[in-house]
């Protein structure tokens, strides 16, 4: 569904991504793990068009068997329109907008009024707290609530591919567990998920497949379980002696 082919990204004089190649299959949950500064967020921002790669292609095929597009030449709004929602690191809800407006902004490109109100309703069912807080400024929500809002907002675009950047960042374990259960649910309902996580234990437990990113290139890949059992990964990312 999504293939990154030999991506190079430069920021100023730094060479951030050095020939990164990976693939996300339709219906999968794929995790990208790695240390701080390895280039995980840069990878995601390259997919959603916020960063233009110096070279390489981001090949995306929205429909099975359908035409392929190279996202690296598209503006972010075109990429959103092609069915990719990116839930950025640190949640980034629009804190001065109301909860409801945040959700509406999530469905910004949609013009079907009925569909929008149906999906608004669905978000409220998914997270009843958002209905309760509907007219409050999003900035007044707690961290966990903001994460729910950020996910619900991303879903308002009815994504085929959902990109999540550090969904567990700064959240209490109980809430993290809920968020991860939700990701699994969304995936079971047909959404492909590509996520970046610091919390490698949870990420590898959830993902079908995963990649390990080091210094801008993929150094290891495999199923979530394979990587979770790999001694090097265990030593470096799972915080346990091999």
């Amino acid at each position: 569904m999504l293939r990154l082919e030999d991506i190079h990204v430069h920021r100023g004089r730094t060479h951030v991504l050095k020939g990164l190649t990976l693939a996300v299959g339709r219906g999968e949950i794929v995790a990208l793990i790695g240390a701080n500064g390895a280039g995980k967020t840069t990878t995601l921002r390259t997919v959603s068009g916020l960063i233009r790669p110096t070279s390489g292609a981001v090949v995306y095929q929205p429909e099975p068997g359908g035409p392929q597009v190279d996202l690296s030449r598209l503006a972010p709004e075109k990429i959103v329109a092609a069915g990719i929602s990116h839930c950025p690191e640190g949640r980034q809800v629009f804190s001065s907008l109301s909860v409801r407006e945040n959700l509406l902004v999530g469905g910004y490109l949609r013009r079907d009024k009925e569909g929008i109100s149906r999906d608004l309703e669905r978000s409220f069912e998914l997270f009843p707290i958002l209905r309760e807080r509907g007219h409050q400024a999003a900035g007044s929500l707690s961290g966990g609530e903001q994460m729910m809002l950020a996910i619900a907002r991303a879903l308002m675009n009815r994504p085929k591919l959902l990109i999540l950047d550090e969904p567990s960042l700064g959240l209490a374990p109980l809430i993290v567990a809920r968020i991860f259960a939700l990701i699994a649910e969304l995936n079971a309902a047909g959404t492909t998920v590509f996520l970046v996580e610091q919390n490698a234990v949870m990420a590898l437990g959830l993902a079908h497949r995963a990649y390990v990113l080091e210094l801008g290139a993929i150094v290891l890949s495999g199923t979530g379980r394979e990587l979770a059992e790999n001694p090097e990964v265990r030593r470096a990312y799972l915080g346990s002696a091999a």
Partner: peptide
């Protein structure tokens, strides 16, 4: 940036 991620031109 986040506005762009929502599809806002």
């Amino acid at each position: 940036d986040t506005a762009r991620l929502m599809g806002i031109d």
